[in-house]
Design a protein around this nucleic acid. Structure first.
Lengths: 102, 102
DNA sequence: GTTATTGTTAGTCTAAGGGCTAACAATGTT
DNA sequence: AACATTGTTAGCCCTTAGACTAACAATAAC
């Protein structure tokens, strides 16, 4: 888990893979079907997701079964909610702040 | 808003700036204080955040006042929650999936 | 035992990311 | 008017990201 989950989520293809896996675990082939890039490129994207802890791989014969790993997603969501929550407790301050000073 | 919010959140310095702004709007100098990189580098990071719609800038004399913009944060959080929610409705399928097949 | 399928590894290429210094622009301060 | 402060722009450098092709490894199917 050397990778940063936020960074891993920073590429649309990787988010696309996450979306597919969110509907159920599946193989590499299925999880990456339709993205218009080469297989090696997709393989790299999967590795980034794996290193960030966002997906788990179980080798099953010649196919690799992928599953979503929600913990990092939960953490990322919690961070976002935390920042949002703090900010939203400050609307009065924001209002006065945004006013031009004379 | 040409930038991708997820990508913008992919750098620790940028997340750090978000964390500071979550505690209240402030100036560039304050929001970036303590990060051990040069001013131009920080300026670039701010631009990335701005282009992703995550922060708003109000020029006030020679200082620039920054404010957090929660909408993209909310969207990002919603996306994460959605994926997580879908996945968590599947635990039975996951269990059977993860078992080795003989 | 070939051949097909699934997926990764190795190596290369190019562009973008993230850093720096030097210089500037704009405003405040004295 | 001169200087200080706040912040950006311009230009450079180096590394990493993200793509490709070619080749391989492992298993399944025939």
């Amino acid at each position: 888990m050397t990778g940063d989950p936020f960074r891993a989520l920073g590429h649309p293809i990787r988010r696309g893979v996450i979306e597919r896996l969110a509907e159920g675990p599946t193989t590499v082939g299925e999880a990456t079907r339709g993205f218009d890039v080469s297989k090696p490129t997709l393989s790299k994207h999967l590795r980034v997701l794996e290193e960030a802890g966002l997906i788990t791989r179980v080798v099953d014969g010649r196919t690799h079964r992928l599953a979503l790993n929600v913990e990092p997603l939960r953490d990322a969501g919690a961070w976002i909610d935390e920042q949002r929550g703090r900010w939203e407790g400050l609307f009065d301050a924001v209002q006065s702040f945004l006013e031009e000073r004379r």
